[in-house]
């Protein structure tokens, strides 16, 4: 009874602890479910490169599985761009419901098949909100003219412009000193930016406008899937799903801790804000979406499962 063992190479960039733990659990589950026939070998912490490079390595088969930001995926498959649209999800519940719905997500996951890889599952990467150095954002007017660091994406830039902010494009590593020195008035990110990236040392106002919820996506190469038997493939998909369930919980716990730490240790003030004017301001982006049937269709599916 000799059977060949398969080793899947899983590489990822620098990541938060919940994601690292979930990926570790994924490998453990794969091994359990296949009785050790399939093993996962890890290349963590950008050992093999940044996320864009990791996708290309997955394309060429040097890496079997990787985990990247959904925002980056737009470069490879335009349909992922919908997830970067501002105020797309009503709340966390709505977001979970969409991401867990195979009727919506299967098409998205398969949209990169011609490139040699597909989506395996998603991980929660939280919500992104504004945080500022000297003046809190309590209304849309407060945001006017503020120099806010923006992610490298046309969607993100467009959103910033419509909200009246002055978007500044720069690398993540420069944000801290730029806020400190006053080149930036603020930035936007999830709560880990305050604690793990230490931006709370220089920015004390966090406005919970929750403009985006961009999921992380776990990718697997076609060549890796082809190596696996049907039952092994089944096991990989099951393990991925279970790791997602774990990650959602772990993320929630960790983010609550980050909020607590921001308040208690750094004295960050959190603000709730009426987002209706914000939503109204970005409406032109949704009008433009109609011109692109594939994206608009996904958008409508996402909205159709919303509660209100």
């Amino acid at each position: 009874n000799v059977s060949a063992q398969t080793t899947l190479r899983l590489a990822y960039a620098s990541n938060s602890q919940p994601v690292k733990d979930a990926l570790a659990l994924f490998g453990k589950l794969v091994e359990e479910k296949t009785d050790g026939e399939v093993k996962v070998m890890y290349f963590p912490d950008s050992q093999l490169g940044g996320e864009r490079e990791l996708i290309e390595l997955t394309q060429t088969g040097a890496v079997d599985i990787t985990k990247v930001s959904g925002g980056l995926m737009e470069s490879f498959s335009p349909v992922y761009g919908v997830f970067s649209m501002p105020y797309l999800f009503d709340n966390e519940q709505h977001f979970y419901q969409v991401m867990d719905d195979p009727k919506i997500m299967d098409g998205v996951y398969q949209s990169t098949k011609h490139l040699g890889f597909v989506g395996l599952t998603w991980y929660d990467s939280g919500q992104r909100s504004f945080y500022t150095k000297s003046k809190p954002i309590k209304t849309l007017d407060d945001l006017k003219g503020m120099k806010i660091r923006v992610m490298q994406s046309q969607t993100a830039i467009k959103m910033m412009e419509l909200l009246g902010a002055a978007p500044v494009a720069m690398g993540q590593a420069e944000v801290y000193t730029s806020i400190q020195q006053g080149i930036l008035d603020g930035a936007e990110n999830n709560e880990f930016a305050l604690t793990v990236a230490r931006h709370a040392e220089v920015a004390k106002h966090y406005t919970m406008d929750t403009h985006t919820r961009i999921p992380d996506i776990v990718l697997i190469s076609d060549s890796a899937l082809a190596q696996l038997s049907d039952s092994e493939r089944q096991a990989v998909f099951e393990a991925a799903r279970e790791s997602t369930e774990f990650e959602k919980q772990a993320w929630k716990t960790a983010i609550e801790q980050a909020q607590q730490e921001s308040r208690d240790k750094f004295g960050v003030a959190f603000y709730d804000v009426d987002i209706a004017p914000f939503q109204q301001a970005v409406q032109p982006m949704y009008d433009e979406l109609k011109a692109n049937p594939a994206l608009y269709d996904l958008y409508q599916q996402i909205r159709s499962v919303a509660q209100n």
């Binding site: 620098s14 602890q17 801290y176 000193t177 604690t195 793990v196 230490r198 040392e201």
Partner: peptide, 12 residues
């Protein structure tokens, strides 16, 4: 700054 990030939030 990179070290602070990967070390899980050491004070910059």
């Amino acid at each position: 700054i990179i070290y602070a990030l990967v070390s899980g939030g050491t004070s910059i």
